[in-house]
């Protein structure tokens, strides 16, 4: 189940300003002021949100920026993992396709 239609060309965006984030140990406890949901995010999800908050990206174009943010090589964090993370965040309503962004 996805939150809606998407393709490899979809440009994704996030709005970090509506999130309240408290770091406890290695978990980013993230409160979404719009949905009222509390999410426990790992560092990869947190990095994806950060990257998509500062610019629209496709799955492919997001990957190098996310890897740079978390300081990892593609061998440690494959692109497929980043795509899955974006889709999970889409499902939670934390990232959305940019309007007209096909």
């Amino acid at each position: 189940m996805a939150a809606g239609p998407y393709s490899d060309e979809t440009l994704w965006t996030a709005d970090i300003t509506r999130l309240v984030i408290r770091v406890m140990e290695d978990v980013n406890l993230t409160f979404d002021t719009l949905s009222g949901d509390t999410h426990a995010l790992n560092f990869l999800s947190a990095a994806v949100i950060q990257v998509l908050s500062s610019g629209k990206e496709t799955f492919a174009s997001a990957a190098p920026r996310v890897l740079e943010t978390i300081g990892m090589e593609e061998s440690d964090c494959p692109k497929g993992l980043i795509k899955d993370t974006i889709l999970q965040l889409d499902e939670a309503g934390l990232v959305i396709p940019a309007r007209g962004g096909e």
Binding site: G4, L34, S35, G36
Partner: peptide, 16 residues
Amino acid sequence: RMLAFEMGRIERALHG
């Protein structure tokens, strides 16, 4: 808040 969030979800589902 619920309403505002759900509006966004409907918009998302109908994207494109």
